[in-house]
Design a protein around this nucleic acid. Sequence first.
DNA 1: GTCTTGACTAGCG
DNA 2: ACGCTAGCCAAGA
Length: 111
Amino acid sequence: MNPFTAQVIHIIKSIPPGRVMSYGQVAAAAGNPRAARQISRILHSMSKKHELPWHRVINAQGGISTPENAEEKGLNQRDLLESEGVVFNLHNKVDLTVYRWFPPEDDVNLI
DNA sequence: GTCTTGACTAGCG
DNA sequence: ACGCTAGCCAAGA
């Protein structure tokens, strides 16, 4: 597996409940700030084999990015986050200044 | 091998 | 504030 992908997995797993990271943030933390889009792909494919808190990853605006048909697939990201204590504002966004998680450097070092 | 596809983002009009 | 565009790059076909 790509070191980058491995890093992404590791970082996602380091996000504690009730906290979130943006796709771009994860990508950057994994060493590739330009690979934000891949995070979603990785999450989707990896969450099948690993237990990954994929729902703690949201877009840079603090909103949910799941497609419309997501609910049909059981991907109601909002519910999962709310059950962890994350609060959505009137615009269906979370306050990133409050909930954004900054991974410790230690976590980003083990490939 | 190549070609297409995104659960993204920053920038611009 | 809002919609559109162009970069971006790993995975799957």
